[in-house]
C-alpha cells in the first residue's frame, strides 16, 4: 500500500546544507469521509508520523494530521555533519512502520 520515495544526495561536503525530499504513497483517509453506497463514515487511516534520523540522531520529525494531503510529501534541509545513514520512518495508524534508508558520503 504505502511505498516510499526519498531523495538524499550521495555525496556532500561537511557543513553543507542539502535539501532532503520524501514522499510516500498513502490515501490519508481523514475519517471524515462517508462511503457513498452505505453512508457510513470511512474510518480514519493516515500516516501519523515521519521521523528522520542521521546516524541515530534526529534531523526532522513531524506529527501528521488528517489535513495533510494524500501521498504525504516532505522536503527539509540537512546540515551534513559527516558520512552516515539517513533513516526515514513513517508510522501508520494502527502502528505499522514503513522505513527507508540511504547512505550519504561526506567529502
Amino acid at each position: 500500500m504505502a511505498k516510499p520515495r526519498i531523495k538524499v544526495p550521495k555525496m556532500a561536503k561537511v557543513g553543507e546544507i542539502v535539501e532532503i525530499k520524501s514522499m510516500i504513497s498513502h490515501k490519508m483517509e481523514s475519517g471524515r469521509r462517508k462511503d457513498k453506497k452505505t453512508g457510513k463514515v470511512i474510518p480514519r487511516k493516515i500516516i501519523n508520523a515521519l521521523k528522520v534520523t542521521f546516524n541515530g540522531k534526529l534531523v526532522f520529525s513531524a506529527s501528521l494530521h488528517p489535513s495533510v494531503s494524500a501521498n504525504p510529501y516532505f522536503a527539509f534541509d540537512f546540515k551534513v555533519p559527516g558520512s552516515g545513514d539517513m533513516v526515514f520512518e513513517w508510522t501508520e495508524d494502527g502502528g505499522k512502520v514503513i522505513t527507508a534508508k540511504k547512505s550519504l558520503k561526506a567529502a
Binding site: 520529525s61 494531503s69 516532505f74 522536503a75 527539509f76 540537512f78 546540515k79
Partner: peptide, 17 residues
C-alpha cells in the same frame, strides 16, 4: 514538526488540505 541543529535551516515544504 520538530527541528534540530542538524536541520541546518528551519525549512519545510509539504502539501495541505
Amino acid at each position: 514538526a520538530q527541528f534540530t541543529p542538524l536541520s541546518g535551516k528551519a525549512y519545510v515544504k509539504s502539501r495541505m488540505r
